[in-house]
Amino acid sequence: MASLLDLQVAFAAALLDPSRQRVPVGLSTGGRPAAEGFGLYRNSVFGNYRKALRAVYPVVEALVGERFFAHAADAYVGVHPSRCGDLNRFGSLFADFLRDFPDAAGLAYLPDTARLEWAIETVFHAEDPAPAALVALSRVSEDDYPGLHFRLAPHCRLIESPWPVDRLWHLNQPGVPWDDDFDIDAGGVLILVRRCGFEVELRRLGAAEGVLLASLVAGLTLGAACERVLERDPQAAIAAMLRGLLSAASLQLAAPAQGLPDGQH
């Protein structure tokens, strides 16, 4: 008699087999063909996967159509099997998959569109915004500002793309009419995906603000990030930009103890 582990491994392998024809041995089915009952599980499993991806990637589906999306979803399962009992996390690698998926090679902007949709999904369910970091900053001596490190808050994501995927996303929202002037080759964007209350907003960052935020998120100190911004735009209003990001709680002080004078930890 097969052990439970062997039985389950064989059952799972038959379910996910690309031929869609395999049926494990040892089933009992009340007189009906085993393939019939087993086929119901197979359909359900692949149906669940597709449904999970469809829920997170409606714009990708709108761009490629229902049939191609289902084809991509089924292929995704083979490359990145589900590793979690929570189906809501199944789609986390879909953008990477699309980047390497030969059948979608003609749609270069598709992976970044998927990355944006996953960021929106992640931000929607992320930890609620903490009180603005300005409070923590008020306890730091201004002399120590250049050495401070910041990190992006959990309810924020930065998405960089050579294509205007934020605009593409917007134009594919229900009820939004297509814009004939939209140009996918209009140039790259840096998008701050952020939750305001319970709503997710996409904000395209200006050049100087983009450099500031990207530098800080990359781990540079505030001083080093400011130098980069000024190289880009000597007139940049850095203080106002930083205040805006901090008061919206998009940035948090990383390891605040490093920036605090002795005795104020």
Binding site: Q8, V9, A12, L16, Y49, S82, G85
Partner: peptide, 25 residues
């Protein structure tokens, strides 16, 4: 039910054999 084998999740409520081994698990 079970839904995971070999580190892969099927995310489906799959049936168990009613055996002593499954009972212990």
């Amino acid at each position: 039910s079970w839904s995971m084998a070999g580190g892969r999740h099927l995310n489906e409520l799959l049936p168990l054999p009613c055996t002593d081994e499954a009972l212990a698990v």
